[in-house]
Design a binder for these strands. Structure first.
Lengths: 155, 155
DNA sequence: GTAGGTCTACTCGGATAAGACTTGTCCGAGTCGACTAGG
DNA sequence: CCTAGTCGACTCGGACAAGTCTTATCCGAGTAGACCTAC
């Protein structure tokens, strides 16, 4: 069970974009330089966030990415699932219905306790990530952080 | 973020072994036939559980696997981490210290809020799986299940 | 001085290869049970 | 009939390939701004 490396990238990039002023944008190249990341691949991930409706992209000179809505309305879970997909890590393939010990379908009307337990754990994980928004992350940074970030990123 | 397919296999196999009487064993071939799984690969996964101290293996005729301790002392998490490893899905590589925007190490004494949030979600997931033991799973099965399982598995 | 047109340069977007990991398979070492022969 | 020895077959254990997904890269389509020219 592993999240893509790019998860860390987009989380940091989203937190960085959240420090910009409204209507300001940052290009994929600027963000890549800011964190020393491979620019083309980072751009691909930012596209995924755009498709998910978390970022908004503008083309042309002075274009780039910006948050599509307020930081307090963007949860960690939304960002993670935008790059990794929303599929649950445990996929029940109903092997209890296969082989010599196979159960009949009507014996399996209730979901198997194993799958239910795994699903509950996934729900707990999602709930934990839903409880934290980008705004919560920003609140933990030093007060001077946005100014520094904007200067280095745009400068 | 995906768990190996074999996770479902070993969970069901562990639940099956928990229905045997003490000192009874089931071989990898018997379990594979019971669920119609590729026997050699299933054996590989059961080995992992043996290394983790969850199962106990005996060789020779009439040998096979059995639980290494009581079902109530085996948690779902222990089984899952035996096959998938205990590594957290989100790995913080401290990219905030790289690139133009890199922070100095002494600015990073506190763990980054993003990594901490992801770690807390992982903790919630683990706690949810620790709360359920194999005995809890067995308690949800019909009362006649162990008899049927033993007859089909061994017979 | 101002407005329109064109042109350039910069942006994102999707389609295309290489590497890593999961999945799947095989054969060898060890051990318990059964058979046989002797007492 | 009982017991010791030997044989055989079944078990797990680790080492070895193929498929699939993540990672990484490239080039093309589109657009906003800047420049130049005409009025």
């Amino acid at each position: 069970m592993k999240l893509p490396t790019s998860t860390e990238w987009v989380l940091h990039c989203a937190a960085t974009l959240a420090q910009l002023r409204p209507a300001e944008t940052a290009s994929a190249a600027q963000l890549a330089a800011y964190y020393d990341l491979p620019a083309p691949y980072l751009a691909k991930q930012l596209q995924a966030l755009t498709r998910a409706g978390i970022l908004s992209a503008t083309t042309g000179p002075r274009g780039g990415f910006r948050l599509a809505r307020a930081a307090k309305d963007i949860t960690m879970l939304q960002i993670v699932e935008a790059v990794d997909g929303a599929a649950a890590p445990y996929e029940c393939r109903e092997i209890r219905q296969q082989g010599r010990g196979g159960l009949t379908p009507d014996e399996c009307q209730e979901t198997c306790p194993l799958a239910r337990t795994m699903a509950e754990a996934h729900t707990a994980w999602r709930a934990s990530l839903t409880a934290v928004s980008l705004a919560d992350i920003l609140a933990e940074l030093p007060s001077g952080a946005p100014t520094r970030t904007r200067r280095i990123l745009m400068g």
